[in-house]
Amino acid sequence: MRPETVVTARGLALRYRDAPVLDGVDLSLCAGETLALLGPNGAGKTSLMRLLAGRLAPQRGTLRVAGGDPARAPAVRRRIGWVPQEIALYPRLTVRENLDVFARLAGLGRRARDEAVARVLARAALDEVADTLVGVLSGGYQRRANIAAALLAEPALILLDEPTQGIDRVARAAIHALLDRLRAGGAALLIATHDFAEAERLADRVAVLRAGRIGLEGRLPDLLATLRTGPPEHEVALADPPAPAAAGALRAAGFHPVGALTWRASDVVAGGRDGAALLAFLRQMGVPVREIRVREPGLEALYLDAVGGAPVLAEAAG
């Protein structure tokens, strides 16, 4: 039996101060499915999420979420959970008090409110900190409480903007487990993230926004399967930032910087040398190499191919 389609977007377009933000976006999302939304800053990710949440209306195109128009129907908006990147909680209230406030705002009556708060505390594994002030909690607990506030009305669609930003691995694993449970329970999840490992861990499908358009979209296993028929990916970890001559040697060998101490190449590098020979070659050229990793290409290679050289459009916010 085919799962219910929760989101259907066709030709969505949005302009901000006469600048195009989104231009002809098509997207769909089914119950029990997780979609990772990727793209550079300014590509339109936050604006697209605001359209899906009903906080903005498209200037062109059609959008249906849970069978209705989220910009016009309050009943539809109540079926959408929005988890912003910022912690949208009251620091001087406890977790339980915060959830009660948001349950009131969702229009839940007293009995339904108490039941909903107890339910999401358990679902997000927050019972042990339920009566702790939010302002003294760790970042990981605050982010879980931020997600819990979006679950009170049992949403069909949950929108999450960078849900694990700035937290440690243990807290990240707890949030990933929570998102897995929500997906297994039948919710549709759209996660905007810059974390490729997170997207590979959580997503069934990936969509890459490129200059206000979908530049790449598909099932993650299918996309990775086509990518991994090519050469392996090489990553150089440096002990120190490279001097100009060392940086030139890295570029001549086919590498490009992806961080202050990390350079990567997805094509055949340095004459096809294997890892050990490449390590010796780069050190001979004065490159302060600490480690070379050889692995199958991942989502980041797909992403860079999809956005490479793309102009960046202005985005209304975020």
Rank of each mutant, 00 (worst) to 15 (best):
M1S: 13
G11F: 02
G11N: 06
R15N: 08
R17D: 12
D18V: 03
V21M: 06
D23G: 10
D23F: 09
L27A: 04
L29R: 01
A31K: 12
G32R: 05
T34V: 11
L35E: 10
P40Q: 11
P40A: 14
M49L: 15
R50I: 13
A53F: 13
G54A: 03
R55A: 15
A57W: 00
A57C: 00
G61T: 05
G61V: 04
R64S: 13
V65F: 00
A71G: 11
R72Y: 01
R78C: 12
Y90L: 08
T94A: 05
D100P: 02
D100N: 04
R110A: 11
R113S: 04
A118D: 05
V120C: 13
L121R: 01
L126G: 06
D127Q: 06
E128P: 01
E128T: 15
T132C: 14
V136K: 07
L137K: 00
G139Q: 08
R143E: 06
A149D: 09
A150D: 09
L151R: 01
E154S: 13
P155Q: 04
A156C: 11
L157Y: 04
I158S: 02
T164E: 10
T164A: 15
Q165E: 15
R169Q: 14
A174T: 08
I175M: 04
L178N: 01
D180H: 13
L182K: 11
A187I: 08
L189K: 06
L190W: 11
T193N: 10
F196W: 07
E198I: 01
A203C: 06
R205V: 04
R205I: 03
V206F: 08
L220S: 14
G230A: 02
P231I: 14
E235A: 10
P241T: 12
P241W: 13
P242Q: 05
P242K: 04
P244E: 02
A246K: 07
A246P: 03
A247W: 04
A249K: 05
P257G: 01
G259R: 08
A260L: 14
T262F: 11
T262R: 15
A270N: 04
A276M: 12
L278R: 06
L278M: 09
R283H: 14
V287K: 02
P288G: 11
R295F: 01
L304A: 03
V307M: 06
G308F: 07
A310W: 10
